[in-house]
Amino acid sequence: MGIELEKNSIHGTPSAATTWANVIKLKKTVLLDMNALGWSAEKLEAMTLIDGQTLAIMNDNDFGLRSTLVDANGKLIDGDPTSCTVDANGAILNDGNCTTGAVSVRATRGDAVNRLTRMWILKFPKALSNYSAS
Rank of each mutant, 00 (worst) to 15 (best):
T54S: 12
D78C: 01
S83H: 08
E45C: 05
M1E: 05
S132I: 07
A133C: 05
G96N: 08
N94Y: 10
T54V: 09
A112C: 05
L31W: 13
F124E: 03
T85L: 10
R106E: 11
G12H: 02
T85C: 03
T85V: 14
R118Y: 11
S40H: 10
V113G: 00
I10L: 13
S15H: 07
T100S: 13
I121W: 04
K25H: 08
D80Y: 06
S15I: 15
L44W: 02
K7H: 01
D62G: 03
F63Y: 15
I77D: 02
D51C: 09
M47Q: 01
L65E: 09
I24E: 09
G74N: 01
I24L: 13
L49E: 11
T29M: 09
S40Y: 04
C98W: 02
G52W: 05
N89G: 03
S104G: 15
T54L: 13
N130C: 01
N35R: 15
G110D: 10
F63W: 13
S67E: 08
R106Y: 02
N114Q: 11
V86C: 07
D87E: 05
N130D: 09
A112T: 15
D71E: 05
L128M: 12
Q53R: 15
G79H: 04
V30K: 10
T19C: 02
A17I: 06
I121P: 00
K7S: 12
I77A: 01
S104R: 05
M58H: 06
T54K: 10
L32A: 04
K75P: 00
N89S: 13
A91P: 00
G101M: 11
P81I: 11
T82R: 12
K126Y: 03
K43S: 14
L44I: 13
N73A: 10
A88H: 05
L31M: 15
T85M: 09
I24G: 02
D78F: 05
H11I: 10
L5Y: 07
S83E: 13
I50W: 14
S83A: 15
T108Y: 06
L49G: 01
A72V: 07
N35M: 12
T18Y: 09
L55R: 08
A133R: 10
T19N: 07
T54F: 14
A36R: 15
R115F: 02
G52H: 13
K123D: 07
N59A: 13
W20K: 07
S129I: 08
G74W: 11
W20H: 04
E6I: 05
A46M: 06
N94D: 15
K28C: 06
P81T: 06
L55M: 14
S67F: 03
D80H: 04
L31D: 03
K7E: 10
S83I: 02
G101E: 05
V113T: 14
M58S: 15
D111E: 07
D71I: 02
E4N: 12
H11K: 12
G12D: 08
N97G: 09
E4I: 10
G74M: 03
L26C: 04
G2Y: 04
A91F: 07
E4V: 11
N130Y: 06
R66S: 03
S40K: 15
I92C: 01
V103Q: 09
A107Q: 14
V105S: 06
A88F: 03
A46S: 09
